[in-house]
Each structure stands twice: as C-alpha cells, then as structure tokens.
Simulated assay, not measured.
Amino acid sequence: MTAIKTTNIVEGNLAQEPKYFPKGQYVARIVFRIMHTDRKLNPQTNQWEDGRTTAVDVNFYGLAAERYAQTIQQQADVFAKGTAVVAWGELSDRPNTWIDRDGTP
C-alpha cells in the first residue's frame, strides 16, 4: 500500500491573535487564522487592486501547541494581529467554505 502525503504552505497575516486551550480534558490546542488578499497591478490605471481574500484556520495540538504557547507568552508582540506569518502542514479532510451575507462563497 502506498500513500502520498501533501504538505501545504500558507502565507498571510494573522487575522486574530492566537488562542490557546491548555491541556485538560483534551490535548492542548492553539488556533489562529491566517488571511491573505491577492493584489494585482492594473496596467490601465497603474494602481494596485485587491482581489480574492483567502482565510485558513491553523491548529496545533499536543506538545507543539504547548511549545507555541510558551513562545507566544515570551514574545507576545511577535504574534500580534496583522503580523506576517508562514505556516505549513496538512489540510483538513473537511475544508469549510465561508459564505458572505449575500450567499456568495
């Protein structure tokens, strides 16, 4: 039996400060959202225009979450909302689509 493991890289900015859920009934977890808006130069106007915005929720579990929580406590300003970040890992097998108030995905 063979398997293919795909690793994804997400670049963007923190849409919110990371939330930490310490170990208790479940394993420790840290979660944050990364957002990125495509920008393209309009050749007619020579102005930058915003394109599609993509949001990805990132979750770390267990020991990784505990280590990130320690780092965040020591350097909270590094993980402030709006900070540029890069995350890599596996995508969930159940991705969600955000629907705006007009019903557009």
Rank of each mutant, 00 (worst) to 15 (best):
A3V: 10
V86C: 15
T7D: 10
W88Q: 15
N59G: 03
P18W: 01
E17V: 12
V10C: 08
V31H: 04
N59P: 00
T37K: 08
A80H: 07
E90K: 15
T104D: 09
V58G: 02
G51C: 07
T104K: 11
T45A: 00
A55W: 11
A87N: 04
K81I: 01
D93E: 15
L41G: 12
L14G: 04
F21A: 13
Q47L: 07
M35H: 08
G24C: 09
W88A: 11
W88M: 13
D38I: 12
P95E: 08
V78N: 14
V86H: 07
A3W: 06
I72E: 03
Y20E: 04
E90D: 12
F21G: 03
A69V: 02
V78C: 08
V58S: 01
P43Y: 01
N96I: 14
Q44C: 00
Y68R: 01
I9P: 09
T37S: 15
A65F: 01
D100K: 09
T71W: 07
I30R: 00
A84R: 05
Q70D: 13
R52Y: 06
G103K: 05
W88F: 13
W48H: 03
D77I: 06
L41W: 09
N59Q: 06
P43N: 04
P22W: 10
Y61A: 02
T37Y: 04
T83M: 15
T97E: 12
W48F: 04
N46D: 12
D57P: 00
N96D: 14
L91I: 05
I99F: 05
R39V: 10
A65G: 02
W48A: 04
G89W: 00
G82I: 03
I4L: 13
R29Q: 11
A64W: 04
K81T: 01
Q44T: 09
K23Q: 10
Q25C: 09
A65L: 03
Y26G: 10
I72A: 02
K23W: 05
D50Q: 10
A69D: 01
R33I: 08
P105I: 12
A84W: 06
T53S: 15
S92E: 08
A69G: 01
W88V: 07
R33P: 00
